Simulated assay, not measured.
Amino acid sequence: MSDLCTGLSRPARLGSMNISGNTIFIPGSTSGIGLALARRLRAKGNTVIVGGRRTELLDSLAADGFDTVRIDTADAGSIRAAADEVIRKHPDLNVVIAMSGIMRVEDWHHPEGFLASAEETVTTNVLGPIRLIAAFVEHLRSKPDATIVTVSSGLAFAPLKATPSYNASKAAIHMLSESLRLQLADTSVKVVELEPPSVRTALLPGQEESEFAMPLDDFADEVVKLFETQPDAKEIQVENVKFLRYGEARGDYDQVVATLNAADPHGK
């Protein structure tokens, strides 16, 4: 196990986590990126608790051997109840991956085209991770080696014009991650930010078949490899996201934004 109190030598590390022997909670992992990573992390020898809203998917994953818990990250009460359940059943919990998120196409020319969507996006994508961290941070601080993994996006650094609230929510998560890393530097809790590009999932209609998006298995495999080979990484970036992530630093930000919105069908 990764617990320093065992006195055993520590295994190879997975980012800020040990590669195996962790107890990991991933809310938002009944499908897509979350589930792909959950399967790979379990295969590495970790206990993985899958969280999600849809009971039929949770039941299916429980039959597949996962521990599961129902959680709606847009609901503060659901987060508190799920945290209590996870910590009670899994006192060794030392990693939380805040995977849950939504993405909506919006038209900001008129309030009826965006306001309800924007409010839902901020509640899920910003308040959700904040509430998750609030629910788990004291427990994680009690562990000798713990990790919070936040999930932003390449769109935190270059905007897709069709999804303003999503872009803004992920930029907020990036800065939240930067700030928490500074605040928690005096604790045992590490903060790692995962920055996906567009991946072939059901996040937006048609995205699963998009040639613009990265194949899900390729993305998940590369993420795990990065955790293994970059033990001190603060940001986990597959190659496909670096075009978006570093446009401003390279000095070609305007070109990046133009290319992004010309290439992605949702940018029209």
Rank of each mutant, 00 (worst) to 15 (best):
S2K: 04
D3M: 03
T6S: 14
G7E: 08
L8A: 13
L8P: 00
S9V: 12
R10M: 12
N18I: 00
P27I: 05
G28Y: 02
L37E: 03
L37H: 04
A38D: 02
R39F: 02
L41E: 01
A43P: 01
A43Q: 11
K44W: 06
G45K: 06
G45F: 05
G51H: 04
R54W: 02
A62I: 03
A63I: 03
D67C: 04
R70Q: 15
I71K: 04
T73E: 07
T73P: 01
T73N: 13
A74P: 07
A76C: 03
S78I: 10
I79Q: 05
I79P: 02
A81Q: 11
D92F: 00
N94F: 10
S100Y: 04
S100I: 07
G101F: 08
M103D: 11
H109L: 12
H110T: 13
E112F: 00
A116N: 12
E120I: 01
T121C: 13
T124M: 09
V126W: 03
V126G: 01
V126K: 03
G128T: 07
R131G: 09
L132G: 01
A135L: 02
H139W: 10
H139V: 08
A146N: 04
I148S: 00
I148R: 02
T150M: 14
V151I: 14
S153W: 09
F157I: 03
A158Q: 10
K161M: 12
K161Y: 06
A162Y: 08
Y166F: 15
S169Y: 07
K170S: 05
I173N: 02
H174Q: 13
L176H: 06
S177R: 01
E178S: 13
L184G: 07
L184I: 02
A185I: 01
T187H: 13
E195T: 15
P205C: 06
G206W: 11
G206C: 08
E211P: 03
M214A: 01
P215S: 08
D218I: 01
V224Y: 12
L226H: 12
Q237H: 11
V238Q: 07
N240T: 04
V241C: 07
K242P: 00
F243V: 13
L244W: 12
R245C: 03
Y246D: 14
Y246R: 10
E248P: 00
D252I: 06
Q255F: 04
T259F: 02
L260R: 08
N261Y: 09
D264M: 11
K268M: 07
